[in-house]
Each structure stands twice: as C-alpha cells, then as structure tokens.
Amino acid sequence: MGEVIVITSGKGGVGKTTTSANLGAALASLGKSVVLIDADIGLRNLDVVMGLENRIVYHLVDVVEGYCRLSQALIKDKRFDNLCLLPAAQTKDKTAVTPEQMRQLCKELKVDFDFVLIDSPAGIEQGFKNAIAGADRALIVATPEVSSVRDADRIIGLLEAESMPAPRLIVNRIRPAMVRRGDMMDISDILDILAIELLGVVPDDESIVVSTNRGEPAALAAASRAGQAYRNIARRLLGEDVPFLSLGDNPGLLFRIRRLFGNAR
C-alpha cells in the first residue's frame, strides 16, 4: 500500500507544480512507482512541466465521471516506466470533482503505486479541499517571502483541522547571497513561525526555468543544484538521512540549518 502526499502552499507561484514534477521524477529514478495527480482542474500545468501534454487523451474528471477507466487516463512518463501522470481537465473547473471522489481515487491508486503525489492548486477553496481529501500527509512549499509564509501558516492550520499528521516544509527559491545580506528571510525565520519539520531547501536556480520550459524535470539533470536538492528531498521522503545542501559559498546558512536541527522542536 502506497502513500498519498499532497503538495500544497496556499499562495500561487511558489513552485508546487515544479516541486511535484521533480519529486515525482526523483522518486521514480530511485526505483519507486509514482503517480502524479494534477488537481489544478481548469489550469492544468503539470503535464506541460513533465513534457507530456501531447499524450493526454482522458483526464481526472473523465475518470471520476466514469467516462473512462483509471488506467486509460494514466499517462506513462517518457523517461521512466514507473512514473505516471493523471492530468487535470482543462475545460472544467474545480467543482467538477468532490472530495469524496478524490478520496476514492487516491484509495484506488495507492494500491498500485508506492507514491501518489497530488499537485494542489493555489488557494483554500474547493480545489484545495479536493486535493487534500485523499492525502495521508502533506508537503508545504513556501518561498522566503512574508506573504508565502503567511499563507503556508494558514494552510497548516487548515490541515490540522483535518487531523492530518503535521506537514513538512520545503523552502523553495532561496537565494543565499540575499539571505546573507539580510535582504531575504532565512530558514530559521521561516521555521520560527511555521514550527514544522523542514524537509528540504531548494536554491533559486535558472536551470529550473529552462528545464520547466523544456518539459524535462531538473531533478534528472546531474548538474542542476535545484535538481540535486529535489533528489535529496526524495531520499529524505524515503526515510534516508541526507545532509542539507551547502548553498554555494555560504557556510553560515548550512550551519544555521544544522543548528536548527540540533534543537529540533
């Protein structure tokens, strides 16, 4: 029996879809069977980021409405046989699916896959409720901005209300140089407010933009620093103890993260 993990943030544009795609690819490259669900109905992106857009025949709404079988809607990744995508519908909206249907869907999928990763839409409305309905646990993506952290806090509160186990945090798009200058929130500032476990820190990296546009997850590019961060996060998801990336020439940040973990709350 696999595990259903929702990737969510509250705020838009912080990298939920990129994180979903890269974690999916990284977990698949580690030999796990993974299915990615794009729960952002009406604004589907995950297929584009995965480079699978041109293979879509059926989508999530077709499945829940019974127009096709689940297996027909699953698109196999070009790179890995053990990675699948269940795309969102582009012509419907969030109300096309109910939380109960999502729960049922996740239940079916986790029989066949080690990991079911759900890419949640931004916001806290119907789409978010659908996305978290079937999830066993959640990963929160936040960027080092006050607005993003505020929204993440709200989301954590909402997840608590669902009796979900404490979510884990991925800090995305951090810029060590700016943190060093004091122009950007650092990890400890964020953890201070959110008080949840840190799963990974992904540096701001131009290669992400390139790989996203090409539909090639950066996690598969050996040279990409962000890709390395995603690979590490995937290994931590599997329970490995992977040290945090040294972000460039900044021993201070690494030290701070280690220190945070030394007295984990």
């Binding site: 806290i124 409305e125 409720k129 709200r154 909402l158 209300a161 669902e162």
Partner: peptide, 9 residues
C-alpha cells in the same frame, strides 16, 4: 474558527 472549514477544531 478555522476559516473555510468552519469551526472544525
């Protein structure tokens, strides 16, 4: 009040 979920908890 837990916002959208109402007073869930």
């Amino acid at each position: 009040q837990n916002g959208a979920r109402g007073a869930r908890r």
